[in-house]
Structures are given as structure tokens and as C-alpha cells.
Nucleic acid binder design. Structure first.
Lengths: 261, 261
DNA sequence: AACATTGTTTGATAATGCAGAACAATATAA
DNA sequence: TTATATTGTTCTGCATTATCAAACAATGTT
């Protein structure tokens, strides 16, 4: 339609800083003070205060009047919900996730690719007492999770390089693949098989099987996985799961308009 | 702790505008173009573009490459989830419960609807020696308690039927409503008033006033009540309480993201 | 009672965001 | 097809605006 080739980043400083402030908050740090934030971002206290005040006036943060600290506000909840609803991938995928859980009694995840990062957008938990701990909205690493590798495997080589360089290849366990070339060979294998395993690469005792979901253009936009404790996830089960997970992923891809196999 | 008396709004223009952009999007307008937004907000096209680019660079909006339009991004989903988790009802409700106790010197309860059953999840006890005996975690009957009736009143008719059939309508006192049609008429009345009374329906000598709490979707997820011995809970006091309890419930609902009145 | 640390306010300075116009690419109309 | 309108994007100079620094007020700590 138009000239859609964005050039160099011409960002608006104050806006970028305000957004950075929002991203300071996390599960571990639900409440932060002005000084705390300004130290973290390297901004002056008064600058931070101005940004916070603006965010506050529109409900993106709110202040705890007991201690003066700030926390994320309800406006974000509202907008987040809007996004959540719009993710029709989620709607389309849900019945297939449910089916997998019912069949294998293990937790199933749905993850999307957000500019090189994976984001959990849904999960259906299995009945077992020993469960994989995960939270919707979280961003797991790409190179050492089933879903992440399933997504990486279908990316252009250049983008894979960029992501791996940016994030690094920290070893979470002895099984984590930390060598770029080894990982790339592994990704090629995944691409050929159409599914990926995570064999305790991010956490000892956790295995999963994942498969990529494609959109109408055939681009990999997401992935699903079935995850569980290694005790239950035997290799026999993993191989059976591979077929089922791949099948479910293909079905979801079709729902998203994918015309391929 | 600090000087917490904010004066005049000294907002940062560009940040405020960026936030305004986010708020342009809605269920009806999931995708908007640069020109569209700039017209709506009365900004210059290039200004809007700069703001959008900054928002995009951090994932707060994303572009539909097919038509160049923008939509809300996954970062908002991520942050919204964070807010959602932090919003546990109990934390939000507590100050309002405390306020009611301080004002009326009677025990206040917070109850959630757990798939058709009421569960006490918090209480703040009044100072009086004659107290209502209750335990957090307990599940009182729905049809003969103030909180239970406040929750029932907003359920789909079919679910009300199911619950009443499952649990039955055992008479605890001569005041217990044991007739289904009478109870349903009573629930309709509660729905109209926005609060419910318990007039010695579960125990002689115990009266209470309750009101429903709604979530962001307007669904009744919980209720609060002020309860005390009939000797102190005169009808005059009950009517005064009705207003206060309803008000507190509405305030808590807002904290839970409810946008209605 | 002295001190350190918070969030908040103010005002001077210059960096920064903004509008206008031009550009490129598409969609629509003739 | 050709012409026109409309889209998203880029560029640059000017003046508005965001920034920093320092001071303030109120609380928590020693």
C-alpha cells in the first residue's frame, strides 16, 4: 500500500523512557519507588517522577498511598484484555490443546513469536500433582525450550543469528545446547521432522515435545508443546507425543488459514 | 513518609499523547491507521507516526504488514497479565472491609463464588464480645445467607436451579426460605436493590447485610457482608448498612476492573 | 534530636519533540 | 490505462518542551 520500509530508529525519548518504566515492574517487583526506578534506568529522579505522573494520570500505574511506591495500573489490565481477546489464534487453538491434555494428561502450552521472543499466551494444565510451573505472559528463552526451538527452526538464518547473539546461549543445565553450530544443526533436524524435543535443556527433570504453527502464508507464528516430568515423559511416550503434537499443530495451522500439509 | 500532595498536573506531552494513542483502540477498532489516529486525536500525521514507531519498537503496538495499520501489541498482554495476578481480590478488598468495621463495629466478611459454592476468604472482626462465629475457608449455604443470596441473585437461572436442586433447601430456622419460587422472587428483589439481607435465616439471633462484587466482565465473583446479633442489628441500622455495604462492594468491584456503575 | 531517605516542586537551559512539506507506494476513479 | 486521492514514511529547522539540578517537605532511622 505505502512505503513500508522503516529506516533508522527515530524514537521519541520521553515516550521510550515511559515505556521502559512500565517494564521495570515484574512478578518479583510489583511495587517500585521513584528513586528505585531512576537508579535502575539511570534517569534523574525528577525526570522519572514526571514520567510516572503522566503514566499515573491515565491509569497505567497507580500509587500505593501507604508507602508512596508505584505499581502497574488497571489500564494495562484493560488493554491487555483487549489484546487477549484479539488473539484469535488462542480461540482456534484451544480445542486442540484440550484434546491433547485429555489424551495425555500432561500440561499443554501455546506460545507465539513476538519479534524474536517467545510469549506464553495460553496453557491447559494436566491433572498430575507434579506440574510444570509456567505463567501466561512470560517469555521463555528460545534456544532451550521445545516451543522456542520449533519457532527458531523456521526462521531465516540471519534472524536466528541476531537472536542468538542478542540473548546469548547461557547453559541452564548440562543438556543445554550452548554451541551455535550444534544448535543450528539441531534446528535443521527439527525442520525436517516437524517437531522438537526439549530434553531437560532448561531444567533438569523437565521434558517436552513441541511443534510449530503456521499462518496462511506458511510463516511460523507460534508453537504448542506438551510438557511433563521426565519420570513420566519416557522416550516411548515422547515419540508417541511427537506424532500427536505435530498433528494438532497442523490442524491449528489449517484453522489459521494455512494451506500446506 | 513523603510529601504526597500532588499539585497541578504537569504532564509530559509526548508521553500523554502516546498513551492516548493506545486508548484509541477498542473492540470495535482493533486496527487503526496513522492518519485515522491523527485525525481522531487532532495531531499531525508525522507526530502520530513518531509516537507509534516508539510504541511499536517496544511491542506496545504492532503493524499489520498487509495493510499498514496498527493494532495493540503483545507487551500490553504481558503487562496486563502481571496486573491481573496482582489483583487478588483479598488484597484489594481489605481496606474497604476495614473501613466498614471501623465505622459500624460489626464483623465483616469477604466471600467468593467457587463454582456455585460460597467460600469465606477473609474477615475482619468487630470489637463486640458477642460475635458471629465464622471461619475463613468455610462454605456456608447459598440460599440462606446474605452473601450467598447476593451471589445467587446474579447467576443465570439455570445455574441457580442446579445449585438449589443439588444442595436442597433445608430449613435452619423458621425464617429460612424453603420454597424455590419464593426464593427466586426474593433474588429478583435483591438484584434490583443491589444488596441483600439475611434476617435470621441460618441462625436465630443473626442478621446481616451483603452486596455483590463484580469482576471486569461484570460477572459477580464475590460478596461482602456485615453481620451481627439481632439485638444490635436493628432495621434502622440494616438500612443504613445497606447503603454503605453496597458502596464498598462497588468500590471493590472497580478495583477488580469493573467499569459499570 | 540529628540525620538520611523518601516523593515532590520549581525554574533555567538547551536538547528534543513537533509541524509542515515532500516522498513513495498503493488504492480508487474516470 | 491514466489521473487523482489517500496512504504510511522521511526530512529538517524552529520553538516548544522535556530535562536536570537543586531545594523542599515529610517520613523513617539512628
Amino acid at each position: 500500500m505505502e512505503n513500508r520500509a522503516k529506516t533508522k530508529s527515530n524514537l521519541i525519548q520521553s515516550v521510550d523512557r515511559a515505556l521502559q518504566i512500565l517494564e521495570c515492574f515484574s512478578r518479583e517487583n510489583r511495587e517500585l519507588g521513584v528513586t528505585e526506578i531512576s537508579k535502575y534506568l539511570g534517569l534523574h529522579k525528577s525526570t522519572t517522577f514526571g514520567l510516572l505522573s503522566t503514566l499515573e494520570s491515565r491509569g497505567y500505574v497507580e500509587q500505593n498511598l501507604d508507602n508512596g511506591k508505584y505499581r502497574l495500573g488497571l489500564k494495562l489490565f484493560e488493554l491487555g484484555n483487549l489484546v487477549h481477546e484479539g488473539l484469535d489464534l488462542r480461540k482456534q487453538a484451544y480445542p486442540f490443546l484440550k484434546e491433547l491434555v485429555d489424551k495425555y494428561q500432561e500440561t499443554v502450552h501455546l506460545v507465539v513469536n513476538d519479534r524474536g521472543e517467545a510469549v506464553y499466551i495460553d496453557k491447559v494444565e494436566g491433572p498430575g500433582a507434579i506440574r510444570m510451573y509456567s505463567q501466561v505472559g512470560k517469555r521463555p528463552p528460545m534456544y532451550c525450550t521445545g516451543v522456542g526451538k520449533a519457532i527458531l527452526a523456521y526462521m531465516p538464518d540471519k534472524e536466528v543469528d541476531r537472536i542468538l547473539f542478542e540473548k546469548g546461549l547461557r547453559p541452564f543445565t548440562p543438556n543445554t545446547i550452548t554451541d551455535v553450530d550444534k544448535l543450528k544443526a539441531h534446528l535443521a533436524e527439527i525442520r525436517e521432522q516437524g517437531y522438537s524435543f526439549d530434553n531437560e535443556e532448561i531444567e533438569i527433570g523437565l521434558r517436552c515435545v513441541a511443534a510449530p504453527i503456521k499462518n496462511h502464508k506458511g510463516e511460523v507464528i507460534a508453537a504448542i508443546s506438551v510438557a511433563g516430568p521426565s519420570t513420566r515423559m519416557t522416550w516411548e511416550k515422547m515419540n508417541i507425543l511427537a506424532i500427536s503434537v505435530k498433528e494438532a499443530a497442523v490442524n491449528i495451522s489449517r484453522r489459521m488459514g494455512y494451506k500446506g500439509i
